[in-house]
Design a protein around this nucleic acid. Structure first.
Length: 295
DNA sequence: AGGTCGGCCTGGCAGC
DNA sequence: TGCTGCCAGGCCGACC
């Protein structure tokens, strides 16, 4: 599942292949992808434009074109962007043709063919017009970038204060912290030695500090390994990431904890499969009944 | 308003 | 063997 490290891996591989090139053809085969715009509306807005930059915001891949035109692409569960795959894979939802500047020596333009594949069809591409619309699009959807200096222990503390929701649910909430998904939430909580069910507001200052470091460490290790491939995630060249081979707890139910060798268990938290070493990540005690208020 | 849950979607696999 | 049905989960909207 593309989370921050997977999307960042795609961005790093794709950026040098598309920056400066012109979109010659956009073929949207699945109208759900461009929803609420019809495929031809999105196509008309993009064809002929040059890709100025390719960025990442949380789990979004952000294409920046001329005249403050943007495409916010989300891969959701099973999306991938492939460059010139042969033969063409199944589940192609979008085809893109780009052309580069005239090559002076060979008198030919570089051409590039990209396809967006997505078996489960959850992925989307949203058109954003203008820098102001861009900022409001992301400010209403995304919180702190966890690898940015703004993600301080003080800010994380402020996010958790007074909240009763399990800490894992908070980590998964993109409006608070952008880019952490199910894999990296489990890996970060294990690194921090915090149980995923602990109410967010009951973390100590020390736990908040450790959690921040755990999130950053897990994400950086994921980027270093070029992402995790569980089933569908692929690099732009079709190859797989390797972070799945370094999981400490995620998807390792029944195996032993790398720290204390006790058995890793699987729970459900916030509706997600959740993996935990209950010796290293101590279960929260049942909250004591609040004292009955005197009337 | 904070928190939880179901729907979207389809490949893969367990179980009969 | 072949079929059924369940599971995976990011995000959003509905609901309590």
């Amino acid at each position: 599942m593309p989370e921050l490290p997977e999307v960042e891996t795609i961005r790093r591989q794709l950026a040098p292949l598309v920056q400066g090139m012109r979109l010659e053809r956009v073929e949207i085969l699945d109208s759900r992808w461009s929803h609420p715009l019809a495929p031809h509306e999105l196509k008309d807005a993009l064809v002929g434009r040059r890709v100025q930059h390719l960025d990442r915001r949380g789990k979004y891949l952000l294409w920046g074109f001329s005249d403050e035109v943007y495409l916010a692409q989300h891969l959701r569960m099973t999306g991938a962007v492939l460059c010139e795959p042969t033969p063409e894979p199944s589940h192609v939802r979008v085809r893109l043709e780009l052309s580069g500047a005239m090559n002076s020596s060979r008198r030919k333009r570089a051409r590039r063919h990209l396809v967006i594949v997505d078996p489960r069809r959850f992925g989307t591409g949203q058109l954003i017009l203008g820098d102001e619309a861009l900022e409001s699009f992301f400010s209403e959807r995304l919180g702190y970038e966890p690898l940015h200096e703004e993600f301080t222990p003080q800010h994380l503390r402020a996010l958790t204060r007074g909240r009763t929701t399990p800490i894992k649910a908070l980590l998964l909430d993109q409006r608070r912290i952008a880019g952490v998904g199910n894999i990296y939430a489990d890996e970060a909580l294990f690194r921090a030695g915090i149980h995923p069910l602990r109410p967010a507001g009951r973390l100590t200052s020390d736990q908040v500090r450790r959690l921040r470091e755990g999130v950053i460490d897990a994400l950086e290790a994921g980027i270093e390994a070029k992402g995790a491939t569980i089933d569908d995630f692929r690099h732009v060249d079709g190859f797989k990431g390797s972070f799945q081979n370094q999981f400490l707890v995620h998807r390792r139910a029944g195996e032993s904890c790398p720290n204390c060798a006790s058995q890793i268990v699987k729970l459900v938290v916030a509706g997600r499969g959740t993996y935990v070493c209950e010796r290293c990540q101590r279960k929260p005690r049942k909250a004591r009944k609040p004292p009955t208020p005197r009337s």
